[in-house]
Structure formats: C-alpha cells, structure tokens
C-alpha cells in the first residue's frame, strides 16, 4: 500500500475486478467475448505482478545499465546498432539476460524455462 491511499491497495483493487471477471463474466459469455475476457484477465495479472515485482526489477535494470556503461536502453540499443559491441555481443546478451527474465516474469512467468 502506498501512502496516502487507503485500502484496497492498487493490487487489491485490481484483484477484485479480476475475480469478478473470472467468476461472473467469463462464465456467462462465449466466443469472441469470452476470448477478450481472458485477455483482460491476463492483462490484469500482468499489472498485479508488475506492482509486486516492479520496484526490485527497476534496480536490477539500473545495475545492468551501469555495468554496461550506458544510461538507458536507448543508449545501449544505439551503441549495439552502431557496432560498438560487435566484439562482445554475447557478453551484452549475458548481461541483459536477468533484465529480460524479469520482464517475462511479469508478462508471462509460465514462459520461463
């Protein structure tokens, strides 16, 4: 929960809507609407996980940027494109692995091997 807000927290509020979608909506629609309800539930779960994990992941991302001596993804992307990392592409990918895993952990944790 974040001051000055009252309960429910942002996650708790989202969870309540997700539960309603799962319990009442999903069971009473079919076809395209049912599919779009599943997409909505999935999107809410992504936000719920991001609210839980996002702050720590931001720290990890900043550490990786620092280790690669760049300010942000834009600078890194431009440098890779310019060929600055051609000699050690695998090192860059190795360094980015935990960042990408964090993104997958929020977007679709079941995808991680």
């Amino acid at each position: 929960m974040t001051a000055p807000h009252d309960r429910p927290s942002a996650s708790e509020l989202l969870e309540s809507v997700r539960e309603w979608l799962e319990r009442d909506v999903l069971t009473s629609v079919e076809g395209r609407l049912q599919f779009h309800t599943r997409v909505a539930i999935n999107a809410m779960n992504i936000v719920i996980r991001e609210l839980e994990l996002g702050a720590d992941q931001e720290v990890t991302h900043a550490e990786v940027m620092k280790a690669l001596a760049v300010a942000n993804d834009r600078e890194l992307a431009d440098a890779i494109r310019a060929g600055d990392f051609d000699a050690n592409l695998t090192d860059v990918l190795q360094a980015l692995k935990p960042v990408v895993e964090d993104k997958v952990r929020v977007a679709n944790p079941g995808y991680l091997r």
Binding site: K97, V100, V104, A107
Partner: peptide
C-alpha cells in the same frame, strides 16, 4: 486491449533470442 497486451509478448522473443544466441 488485445493489441495492447501483445506488447507484453515482445519480451518472450527477447528471451528466446538470448537463449538461441
């Protein structure tokens, strides 16, 4: 929202590319 949510599938491909490369 269906198109919006696809944006969060981008990282699945980053994950697979890292694994393959």
């Amino acid at each position: 929202h269906e198109l919006a949510a696809i944006g969060r599938r981008v990282c699945e491909n980053e994950y697979d590319l890292i694994e393959m490369l």
